[in-house]
């Protein structure tokens, strides 16, 4: 599966996509399609697609950590959990309006990112991976055992929010909510990638020492990546809580973190279109092959291994230079 094996049609297509104007056209068409799909889709399809947009947000968030800054985070579900529980607790137990809980969720996930990232981001990458894994498990166990989080059974009966008087309760509502969030996440990712900070991430990823010698605060820029990634997870979790109306600790397992990571790796670390493709593959694959059941994660793991061995840049083609 070397790049030379790409058919010339694909190469031409990619070259064509290199032009800013052409890329905008494609994006507009895709956005338009995404907007009108609910008019023709049935409820099941809508649910699956909503889920795909949801994973797109999570994967884009993790992509900032893994793809841009090159840090392996094996506990990303923890930030998603922090967001979901913040909204869940504030709405169901304190009766606070959903929209007001979003800033709180963002703040809490940011704090969680700073608390875990601050002292650990100077560690070697493999140690960091283990620390994030441990942190993910700690968050889940805490959620399982505290009273305020509803223990092992979690929180139920989280109120659906209303938006200018319309109660967001139908599938189509959440489809649009998650679509808009995903578009916003793409926008933010794109802008960050092509910014001073985005370049700093790339410098640090390529050569930490050289980056530091150029005056870049290695730990500082990593912390930015970590905290921004955490915020993506927090926001996604917040909306997840009101969409599901119930959350339980078992949603936020290590397997969940690995799944999100898989989406990032599958499509191509650091590439926004790749990550979107990865997130969709993650959601659509088990829906298309329903008979697989418990084999799902096994197949995902095998795919992940094959990708790493033969095409570490992911399925999305690399830029032609």
């Amino acid at each position: 599966m070397s790049p030379s094996a790409d058919t010339s049609v694909v190469t031409d297509g990619i070259n064509w996509l290199q032009h800013q104007r052409n890329r905008m056209i494609v994006l507009m068409v895709m956005a338009a399609v995404a907007m009108v799909i609910p008019l023709v889709a049935n409820n099941y399809m809508l649910e699956v697609l909503t889920n795909a947009w949801f994973y797109t947000i999570l994967c884009l968030g993790l992509n900032i950590v893994v793809g841009y800054a090159g840090l392996l985070d094996l506990g990303y579900a923890a930030f998603f959990a922090v967001g979901a529980y913040t909204t869940g607790i504030l709405t169901s137990q304190f009766g606070i309006n959903f929209w007001l809980t979003i800033p709180a969720a963002v703040l809490c996930s940011m704090l969680a990112g700073i608390i875990i990232g601050g002292p650990t981001l100077r560690l070697r990458s493999d140690y960091l991976a283990i620390v994030t894994l441990g942190f993910g498990e700690i968050v889940r166990i805490i959620a399982r055992n505290l009273e305020i989080t509803g223990g092992a059974s979690g929180l139920i009966g989280i109120d659906r929010p209303s938006f200018f008087g319309i109660e967001l309760s139908q599938g189509i509502h959440f489809y649009y909510v998650f679509l808009l969030l995903a578009i916003f996440a793409c926008f933010v990712s794109y802008r960050l990638q092509n910014s001073r900070l985005g370049r700093a991430w790339q410098y640090v990823r390529e050569d930490e020492d050289a980056a530091e010698a150029m005056g870049i605060n290695r730990v500082g820029v990593k912390l930015y990546a970590y905290v921004i990634g955490a915020m993506f997870g927090g926001v996604a979790g917040s909306f997840f809580a009101v969409k599901m109306t119930a959350i339980s600790p078992e949603t936020f397992t290590f397997a969940q973190s690995v799944l999100i990571l898989l989406g990032v790796v599958l499509g191509g670390m650091g590439k926004i279109p790749g990550v979107i493709v990865g997130a969709f593959a993650l959601v659509l694959f088990p829906e298309i092959f329903r008979g697989l059941g418990s084999m799902r994660m096994l197949i995902f793991a095998i795919v992940m291994l094959i990708i790493m061995l033969y095409r570490p840049e992911g399925i999305w083609p690399r830029k032609q230079s």
């Binding site: 840090l71 392996l72 991976a129 690995v258 990571l261 084999m295 096994l298 793991a301 291994l305």
Partner: peptide, 18 residues
């Protein structure tokens, strides 16, 4: 890169357990 080999090791772990 280190990141790649760590992800590879993770994949192997998932293959064995799953």
């Amino acid at each position: 890169p280190r990141l790649s080999i760590l992800i590879t090791a993770l994949a192997v772990s998932m293959i064995l357990s799953n």
